[in-house]
Design a protein around this nucleic acid. Structure first.
Lengths: 107, 107
DNA sequence: TTGACAGGCAACCATTTGGTTGCTTATAAA
DNA sequence: TTTATAAGCAACCAAATGGTTGCCTGTCAA
């Protein structure tokens, strides 16, 4: 729940791109994430480490491959605690609705 | 509307703190923003320049003082375009409600 | 009109960041 | 049991970042 790490992790376009890739297809390997990324594998690995440190992704090792999964919790946390602040007028109604949707929809 | 500039601007804790100060009291001068910030005036000025570059604040010069105003638009833009992506399940309902509230409440 | 005060400009500095290359380790397949 | 493949480790590098100090400019008030 370290806001600073999350903001710093999101500050880099390459890392946001990695998140995008994982968003559209979750559970990719390091090598898969490298494809057409115009960056060395090691550079990507570093970015992934930063994202994982910020808890924006998690990973599982299966044999010699490592799968990467996006984690929406910190990003939603920031949206909740920080960004929505700037639309306080709507916050109450919005979070009430969200809660209702979550309660109703499960997860 | 440059996402990258906004993310980069938000990546620094001092800058987020400055936005916090402007959020709780808008229209502060540079010197006012410096108070108990344990940083030189010039450092603060640089941060403000970065925030202004990212369109997160605007400023007006009145005589020899310069007033700084927070601008929620880019932050809401990011929340809309990027962050809500990670809660797509709710997006439709949420944005519909937002729109309704805005139409109803005026700006 | 002359201080005092708000802010701007520019040079400089240490550290962090984003990237590289080269080599090693571990697992899967021939 | 080799060999190829996925990933990790470490050293290194240039550029960006966050900060400093010193001095300049412009405006208000005594």
């Amino acid at each position: 729940m370290n806001d600073d790490a999350v903001f710093k992790a999101l500050a880099d376009a390459s890392r946001r791109q990695l998140l995008d890739r994982l968003y559209e297809r979750n559970g990719l390997t390091l090598n898969a994430l490298c494809e057409d990324l115009d960056m060395s594998r090691q550079a990507v690995a570093k970015h992934l480490a930063i994202l994982e440190e910020a808890n924006l992704i998690s990973s599982e090792k299966h044999g010699r491959v490592k799968l990467h999964f996006i984690n929406a919790v910190p990003i939603n946390g920031i949206a909740e605690r920080w960004i929505n602040k700037f639309e306080r007028r709507h916050l109450n109604a919005l979070s009430a609705l969200k809660k209702a949707l979550e309660d109703e929809g499960g997860q």
